[in-house]
Simulated assay, not measured.
Amino acid sequence: MEVASSISAAKMFKAFVLDGDNLIPKILPAAIKGVEIVEGDGGVGSIKLITFGEGTSQLRSMKHRIDGLDKENFTYSYTLIEGDALMNEIESIMYHVKIVPSADGGSICKNRSIYHTKGDAQITEEQIKAGKEKAMGVFKALEAYLQANPDTYN
Rank of each mutant, 00 (worst) to 15 (best):
M62A: 03
C109Q: 06
D67T: 07
L80E: 00
I99A: 06
A121F: 07
D120R: 10
Y95I: 13
V97N: 05
S77Q: 12
S77F: 11
L69P: 01
Q127I: 01
F74Q: 01
G105F: 01
H96C: 12
Y95W: 08
Y95M: 12
I66M: 03
K140R: 13
K63D: 11
Q127C: 05
E82H: 00
A103E: 15
I123L: 10
I123R: 02
E82W: 02
I114H: 10
K98G: 10
T117H: 00
E82I: 02
H96T: 12
E82M: 01
E82D: 06
T117D: 01
M136T: 13
E72D: 14
L86V: 01
H96A: 15
R112H: 12
D104M: 04
Y115L: 08
E72A: 14
K132C: 08
N73G: 09
G131K: 02
K118R: 08
S107H: 06
K132L: 10
L86F: 01
I128A: 08
R65E: 06
I81V: 15
E82P: 00
K132V: 10
S107E: 02
P101A: 00
E126N: 11
K63S: 09
M136K: 06
K129Q: 12
L86P: 00
K110Y: 05
T79A: 13
L86I: 04
M62K: 09
F74K: 04
K134R: 11
S77H: 08
S92K: 11
I123K: 00
K132R: 14
A135T: 12
N88G: 15
I128G: 04
K98Y: 07
K118H: 03
K71N: 10
A85M: 15
S92E: 08
G137M: 12
G137D: 09
I114N: 09
N88K: 10
I123F: 03
Y78W: 11
D120G: 13
Y115F: 15
V97L: 14
K98S: 13
N88Q: 09
K71A: 04
D120Y: 09
T75A: 12
S77W: 06
T124E: 05
I81R: 01
G68S: 15
R65C: 10
I108H: 02
T75C: 12
D104L: 02
S92T: 08
D120V: 07
K98R: 15
E89Y: 03
S92H: 10
L69T: 05
Q127D: 08
H116C: 11
I128C: 09
E133V: 14
E72V: 14
C109A: 14
Q127K: 14
K140V: 04
V100C: 10
Y78N: 11
G106T: 03
D120P: 05
S107N: 06
E72K: 08
Y115A: 05
E91R: 13
C109M: 13
K63C: 12
K134P: 00
A103Q: 12
N88F: 07
K134A: 13
L69H: 03
Y78T: 07
H64C: 07
I90K: 01
I93T: 01
K63E: 08
D104Y: 05
K118Q: 06
L80Q: 02
M87T: 11
N88P: 08
Y95D: 05
